[in-house]
Simulated scan of single mutants.
Amino acid sequence: MSDSNIATAQKVAGAPTIVVSAKPVVLSAPGRGENLQVRVSAPMTGGDLPVIVFSHGYGWSMNGYAPLADFWAAHGFVVLQPTHLDSRTLGLPAEDPRTPRIWRFRIEDLKRVLDGLDALEGSLPGLSGRLDRGRIAVAGHSWGAQTASTLLGARVLDSDGAPGEDMSDPRVKAGVLLAITGLGDDLTPFAAENLPFLKPSFDNMTPPALIVAGDHDQSALSTRGPDWFTDSYTYSPGRKSLLTLFGAEHSLGGIPGYEVAETTDESPARVALIQQLTSAFLRSALYPEDTGWQAAATALEEVPNPLGKLQSK
C-alpha cells in the first residue's frame, strides 16, 4: 500500500482487537435438503456489537472472504457467514431439483440466520448477551450482493416485468453490496435464458447502502460494460453511496481471498480501502452520531493518487 493510502486507512481505523470464530454452527433448515452451516466471528471483547450477515458469491462458502470477515470482526462487528446451496463444498449437481430455486434458498438462508441469532450467539463462548439486535446489516459479493439486496427491498421482476414478491426484512438497517449485478435489460442470451432471477428492480431498495464496483469488471452475463455493476446505486432511492475502484475486476482486488482463482486483480491496497470504507459506512449507517464515514470520504478525496472515487446521494 502506498504511503498516501496508509494515511487514509489510519484516519478511519481504530485499533483492532482479537477475533474468535466458530464453525460450522448448524441451523436446522426443514425443506432445504441440507441444514444450514454458518461461521460466526466476533471480537473477543466489547458489548452491544452490531451484526453483519454476509452472503458469499457463487460457489464459495462460509470459509471464504477472510479479508472482509476478519477485518470487520476485529473492528467491532459480529460477522455471520452462511454456506449457500451453490457452494462447491456441497457439490449439488446441476440436475438437482433445487437448482432453479437456489436464488430463493439463498434469501431464505439469510433470513434463517436472523431467525437463529439465539443459537448463533450461544455457539461462541463468551458471546451471549453481547449482540445489538437493533443494529443489523447485510453484505454480499456478486450473487451474494444480489441476495443481500433483496433484504434491503430490491425485488426480482416476474415474467411480465412487474416487481415480484417483497422479500425485504425490517430487521436489516443497512447494506454493503460488492460487485452487485445490474438490471436485466442487458443480459446476454445465455443469462436471460438460464438466470431469470437476474432481473431486479431497485425501486424499493430504501435503506442506506454502499455499492462497490470495479471499473474493469466486465461480466460475461451482461452486454454492457462495468457500469452495469452501478445500477443499484443509479436506480435506488434513499441514501446511497458508490465506491468505484480504479482498475478493479470482479474480485475487487481480492476480497474472496488472496492466491485463489477468482482473484484476477490482486491488490492488497485496494482490499484495505474496501475494508476501511465499508466498516466506516456501516458504523455511520447503524449509528447516526458516528462521523467516521465523513472522515473516510474526506480522507479519500485528499489522497493525491486515489484508488477510487466516491459518490453519494
Rank of each mutant, 00 (worst) to 15 (best):
K309Y: 04
G253I: 10
A73Q: 01
L307S: 01
T17D: 13
R39M: 00
S149H: 09
P16K: 10
T8N: 06
D203K: 15
G238L: 02
A7I: 02
P82Q: 11
V19S: 08
S128V: 11
A29K: 03
S128M: 08
G91S: 13
L178Q: 14
D115A: 15
Q146F: 14
L277H: 08
P163M: 01
Q311H: 14
V20W: 02
G253R: 10
F229C: 00
V113I: 07
T244P: 07
P82M: 06
L177Q: 03
V176A: 11
L117T: 10
Q294Y: 04
Q218G: 02
F229Q: 08
R101V: 06
L178D: 09
R283A: 11
F77C: 03
D215F: 05
S28F: 00
D203R: 13
V51A: 14
K240E: 06
L85S: 06
L183M: 12
A192I: 04
A74D: 01
R239L: 09
V38S: 07
K23G: 00
P237Q: 14
L310Y: 12
V156K: 05
G161W: 11
D185Q: 15
F77W: 15
Y235N: 06
L277G: 02
R39S: 13
L245S: 04
V303P: 01
H216M: 13
G292T: 12
D115K: 01
D3T: 09
F197C: 10
S279T: 15
S267F: 11
G14T: 15
N194E: 15
L80Y: 02
P237Y: 09
I52M: 06
P237K: 13
L286G: 03
K23S: 14
P82R: 02
A192T: 11
H250F: 04
A94V: 11
N5Q: 12
